[in-house]
């Protein structure tokens, strides 16, 4: 079975897409930390639950961005086939 150059490029693109999704680790840690701190804050001041939840969700959505950059790179490698 012969493997042409283009096949090799597709295979390497798929591996690269998988590697790009390692970026998902960062937001996972960050969001978990934010949620933990928010839980501690609610424990200290249950009255401010609404404000704390809103702030936490906003911060988590911003922290998610770096992971989403990884996702965009992976999707471009998989579906757009730039090479």
């Amino acid at each position: 079975m012969g493997i042409s150059g283009q096949d090799l490029i597709y295979a390497c693109s798929a591996i690269g897409a998988g590697l790009a999704m390692i970026a998902g680790i960062g937001p996972g840690v960050g969001q978990g930390y934010a949620a933990g701190q928010a839980a501690a804050a609610v424990g200290r001041n249950p009255g401010a639950r609404g404000t704390i939840t809103t702030t936490m969700l906003l911060g988590q959505a911003v922290a998610e961005t770096t992971g989403l950059y990884g996702l965009v790179v992976a999707i471009i490698l998989m579906f757009v086939k730039p090479f």
């Binding site: 959505a61 911003v62 998610e64 961005t65 989403l68 950059y69 996702l71 965009v72 999707i75």
Partner: peptide, 16 residues
């Protein structure tokens, strides 16, 4: 670029 990519990538992840 960052705010547009954030919205785009979230919605694309959902669609995907």
């Amino acid at each position: 670029i960052s705010i547009s990519l954030r919205l785009f990538a979230n919605m694309l992840a959902g669609t995907l």
